Amino acid sequence: MAEQTPTDNLSDSWRWKFDFFNTYGQPNSTPAAKAAYRNLSFMAKLRLNSNILAFLFGPIYFFVKGMWRKGLTLLALTVVVAAVGVSLGVSDTIARAIGLGIAALAMSTANYAYYLHVVRGSQSWNPFEGFGRAG
């Protein structure tokens, strides 16, 4: 019986994202990754870097995908930012903008976080793991 890899149960869309991450890493991590990313269509770039379900459901999406540590971190970030906003009496407009910003962070980190979780077995609490400067 052939041994299954962690990506055998995934959809073609996830496999495509994982193949890119396996080959190049994050899109801005190396010159080769930047070049490969530039060659993608607009929709492919959007699919690679964005996750609408993570935008809509935030920490819940991370919990459902098995990344509960990262989900708890995002939830804690959201609660802390909301508490600070309430204590400072920020306007509704600013509070909504901050909420959209946190949702955008979840959306832009979810795909790579899921890749790290499935392929590399990441158990990190950091939802931004792998982002930042390549060293």
Rank of each mutant, 00 (worst) to 15 (best):
I60A: 04
V90K: 14
G99K: 10
D8G: 04
G132C: 09
I102L: 12
K34E: 04
M1V: 15
R38D: 12
F63I: 01
Y61G: 10
F18Q: 05
M1A: 15
G130V: 03
T78Y: 04
N39W: 13
Y37C: 03
V64Y: 13
A32W: 06
M43Y: 01
Y24I: 05
K45G: 06
E129A: 10
A32E: 15
S91V: 07
G89A: 00
R47Q: 15
V86H: 13
D19N: 13
L75H: 03
A113R: 08
V86F: 15
D12T: 07
N28P: 05
D8Q: 01
L10F: 04
L48H: 08
A44P: 07
R38C: 07
G25D: 06
S29F: 00
W68Y: 06
L48Y: 03
A106I: 02
N49I: 13
I94E: 13
T78E: 08
A2C: 09
N126Y: 09
R69D: 05
A104G: 14
L116W: 06
L72C: 11
F18R: 03
S11K: 00
A95H: 07
V79A: 03
L74D: 02
W16M: 09
R38H: 09
K70S: 03
K17C: 03
L88W: 09
M67G: 04
T30A: 09
S41L: 07
F131V: 07
D12G: 02
M107Y: 09
V79I: 08
G99T: 00
L72A: 01
L77R: 01
A83F: 04
A113K: 05
N22C: 08
K45N: 01
L116V: 09
G132S: 01
A104E: 00
M43C: 13
A104S: 10
A134Y: 13
G58A: 02
G121N: 01
I102Q: 07
V119M: 11
M43Q: 12
R96C: 11
M43S: 14
A97E: 13
Y37H: 11
E129M: 09
